[in-house]
């Protein structure tokens, strides 16, 4: 899949510290340069499978049941920017840490953009149906250990080169696994909300009375 030519700058700036900070020319140039470099090395890959609900393998805890309520099918997906993104950030950590921080933020933006593109594709392939937002292992009471189930069911190591370590951290790091429900009935619009977020106690945005947007 191909990425858009531009990454979402506003989101990158929020990752870097917030929209309230004055963006100097130097900072702007640094972000431009990092964006160019990142986009030139990454080759995003993804895979989706549709499963009929209830799918017992992935139903663990209350949150996912609530999340998929009213859905008769769900799409499981995995996506990654690939090993080169990690490598680029690793190299920058040796040669120029300021750059590494910018690359890291941009890569986080990029994988989220990839996921949004996948959302759109799923929606296009299932006309007339409604898609819940993506729910990932580690959200709320949805166990991170399900990462292994997701990767196995999606055949992710072989299909897109995505695997995990013993602590269930995805490798490459700039990757996502998630499940989104498909429903014939409209799904009430809601934000993902902070309640299920593992960062809820330390989040910068919340501290400043903001919301990350998810």
């Amino acid at each position: 899949m191909t990425l858009p030519e531009k990454l979402d700058r506003g989101e990158a700036i929020r990752y870097l510290g917030g929209a309230g900070i004055e963006l100097t020319d130097e900072m702007n140039a640094l972000i431009d340069d990092c964006e160019r470099e990142l986009l030139s090395v990454i080759a995003p890959k993804y895979r989706c499978i549709t499963v009929a609900l209830p799918c017992e393998e992935i139903m663990r805890g209350e949150d996912i049941r609530r999340h998929l309520e009213g859905c008769d099918r769900a799409v499981m997906l995995c996506a990654t920017l690939g090993a080169q993104a990690d490598r680029l950030i690793r190299i920058a950590q040796v040669s120029d840490m300021a750059r590494a921080v910018v690359l890291d933020s941009l890569a986080s933006v990029a994988i989220e953009q990839v996921c949004r593109m996948i959302d759109e594709m799923i929606a296009a392939e299932n006309p007339g149906e409604y898609l819940t937002f993506r729910f990932s292992p580690g959200y709320g009471d949805y166990p991170i250990e399900l990462q292994k189930t997701f990767l196995t069911m999606l055949d992710a190591p072989r299909r897109i080169g995505l695997s995990m370590n013993e602590s269930c951290l995805l490798i490459p790091a700039k990757s996502v696994t998630a499940v989104a429900g498909l429903s014939k009935e409209p799904i009430p619009k809601r934000k993902r909300g902070c309640a299920v977020c593992s960062l809820k106690n330390t989040c910068r945005y919340r501290r400043n009375g903001e919301h990350c947007g998810f």
């Binding site: 510290g17 309230g20 900072m27 840490m97 300021a98 750059r99 921080v101 910018v102």
Partner: peptide, 11 residues
């Protein structure tokens, strides 16, 4: 105080 970005602090 949130007046500069982290990369600026590092630089």
């Amino acid at each position: 105080k949130g007046r500069i970005f982290l990369p600026q602090l590092i630089q």
